[in-house]
C-alpha cells in the first residue's frame, strides 16, 4: 500500500513529541502528573484535574478494533490509485478513552470484527520527509 500521496502529519506544539516518537517506532501517550490519567490526543492540560504537568510514557502498543470503514470515493486526487482503502479506529488496551486511527496490515477486511485484538506496527512512508505512521496488525498474526 502506497502512503506517499497521503496528506502529511501536521504536528502542533502539543503533539510534536508524539510524532517524533512515532518516527522512532515508539507509541507513547501522556500521563498526567497530577492524577495519573492517560490521555491522547496530545493536550497541554488535563481535563480531569486541570494539571498542566505531564509525562510522556510508553503505551502497551495493543488495542482492540472499535470501528472501521472502507473508502471507495476519491476525496483527494492524490489517493485516486489507492481506493478502496481501509481505516481502523482502535481502542487502546491502556484505556477505554484512548483511540487511535490507522490502516490494517497483515490481513484483509474479512478478518475484521468488533474487538479484534491488534498491535501497533510502524510504517515508514517512502520519500524524503521522514514521515512514519502507526498501523495495526491483528495480534495473532504478530510474530
Amino acid at each position: 500500500m502506497s502512503l506517499s500521496e497521503r496528506p502529511r502529519p501536521e504536528p502542533d506544539r502539543d503533539s510534536a513529541p508524539w510524532w517524533e516518537a512515532v518516527r522512532r517506532h515508539e507509541l507513547i501517550v501522556q500521563r498526567c502528573d497530577g492524577c495519573a490519567a492517560l490521555r491522547f490526543p496530545a493536550r497541554s492540560v488535563c481535563n480531569r484535574c486541570r494539571s498542566r504537568n505531564w509525562t510522556w510514557v510508553p503505551a502497551s502498543g495493543t488495542g482492540r478494533v472499535y470501528s472501521w470503514i472502507i473508502t471507495h470515493q476519491v476525496f483527494l486526487k492524490g489517493l485516486a490509485d489507492e481506493v478502496p482503502f481501509l481505516v481502523l479506529l482502535v481502542r487502546l488496551d491502556d484505556g477505554d478513552d484512548l483511540l487511535m486511527y490507522g490502516g490494517l496490515v497483515g490481513a484483509g477486511a474479512d478478518v475484521l470484527r468488533p474487538g479484534l485484538p491488534v498491535e501497533a506496527v510502524f510504517t515508514d512512508v517512502p520519500g524524503e520527509d521522514g514521515t512514519t505512521l502507526v498501523q495495526w496488525k491483528p495480534r495473532d498474526l504478530v510474530s
Partner: peptide
C-alpha cells in the same frame, strides 16, 4: 486532531460518519 486522521486519507465528512 485532523492530524491523526488525514495522513491515513481519512478526512472527509462521509468517512467520519461512516466510522
Amino acid at each position: 486532531d485532523a492530524q491523526y486522521q488525514a495522513p491515513y486519507g481519512h478526512l472527509a465528512p462521509p468517512q467520519q460518519f461512516a466510522m
